[in-house]
Simulated scan of single mutants.
Amino acid sequence: MASTLSSAEASRGAAATAGNPRSGRKRPGPYPLWFLLIPALIYGVFFLVPTVFSFYFSFTRWDLFTSQWIGLKNYQTFFQEQALVIGLRNTLIYAVLTSGLKVVLGMALALLLTSQIIARGYLRSVIFFPVLVSAIGIGLTFTVLMDPEKGLINKALAGVGVDGPGWLTDPSLALLSVALVDVWKGVGLATVIYIAGLVSIPGEYYEAASVDGASKWEVFRHIMLPLARPATASVITLSLIGGLRSFDLIWSMTKGGPGFASDVIASVIYKQYQAGFYGLSTAGSVVLFVLVTVIVVPLTRWLNRGEES
C-alpha cells in the first residue's frame, strides 16, 4: 500500500514538474520563429529604413536625383527660423491643451455614459462618431461654421445679441479654435477608453464603499480615479502624441495662419517642403521625431510605473 502511494505521489510530482515552465527547459511557443519574418520585414521596410534615411538626408542638401553632404547646416538654419520658435511654442500649447481637455471631458462623459440613463448605447455611438470622420472633412466643415460673417456659429450668437469673434482670423483665437475642434473630434476615443476602464473595476469595491457609507465623490476619488489609472495613462499618451504631431486639422482650417499664429512644427516642415527646401524639411521631421520621443517616452514610463509589478 505504501509503495503504491509513493508511486502515485512520484507520478504527480513528475507531472507537476513537467507542467511547470520554470522547472525545466522552456517550452516552444505555438508558432515557429519564422512566422515573425513577414512582420519584421514590413516593420523594417516601412519604419526602420525610412527612419535611417531621414536621419541621413537631414544632413544633406538633396532633391530627387542628387544629394550633397552639408553637416549640421540644415539644423542651424531650421533653429534660426522665427517660424520654428513660434511653431514649437504653439505645438506644446496645442498638445497640452487638447490632451488635458480630452482627459477631463473623456472621464466626465464616461461617468455619464456608464450611469443608468436613457438611450445610453445611442449616446455612446453619438460621442464616438466624430472619431470616424476624416480630419480634413471636419476641418473644412468647421472652417465654414466658424466664418466670421457667414458662419452658423456667429449667426447663432448674433441671434442672442452677441457679436461673434473671428474664430480663425483673430491671431489670439485661431490656435484655440482649432484645438477645441480637435477635442470635439477626439474626445470620443478618450471616452471609450475610460468606459472600458470603469466597467472593468470589480463591483466588490463599490459594495464595500456603500457599506462604509462613502459619498459619490469619495467613491470617485478613492475607487474610480485610482483604478482607472491605466485608462488615464492611455488617454494622455495617445492624445499627447496626436497633439504633438497634429497637422491635417490645422492645415485644413488655418494653414498656420493668420501669419504664424497657429503654426505648429508639422506645418512649418510642410511649408519648407513646399518651398523646395527638402533637406531643411527633413531636418525638421527629425526634430519633431526627437521632440515626441523625449516628451512621450519618459511620461509614459512615469504614468505606467508600478503596473508591471
Rank of each mutant, 00 (worst) to 15 (best):
Q82M: 15
G137K: 00
V131W: 06
I127E: 01
T60C: 15
R124Y: 04
L175N: 01
G87R: 12
L168M: 02
V187C: 10
G188D: 00
M146G: 07
Y75V: 14
I201D: 09
G188L: 00
I201L: 03
D163P: 08
L109H: 08
W69L: 15
L123N: 01
V178Y: 06
V96Y: 05
S200Y: 06
G197R: 01
V103Y: 10
T77M: 10
Y94L: 12
S172M: 13
Q80W: 09
G186R: 05
S115N: 02
G139E: 01
S58L: 13
G164A: 03
G186S: 14
D147A: 03
G87Y: 06
A156C: 11
L111C: 00
L97S: 04
V144G: 04
L176D: 10
P202G: 13
V181C: 06
Q82G: 15
N154A: 03
A95T: 02
T143C: 01
L112P: 01
K150A: 12
W184P: 10
Q116T: 09
S58R: 11
E149V: 09
G137A: 13
T98G: 01
S134E: 02
F79I: 12
V162H: 01
V96H: 11
M107D: 00
G197S: 03
V181S: 05
P171C: 11
Y194R: 11
T114E: 02
F59T: 14
V96K: 10
G137P: 06
Q116D: 15
A179F: 08
Y94T: 05
G139V: 04
I118N: 09
A190C: 03
G71Y: 08
F78S: 02
S200P: 04
S58W: 13
L92I: 15
N74C: 03
L168S: 10
L189N: 06
L112K: 03
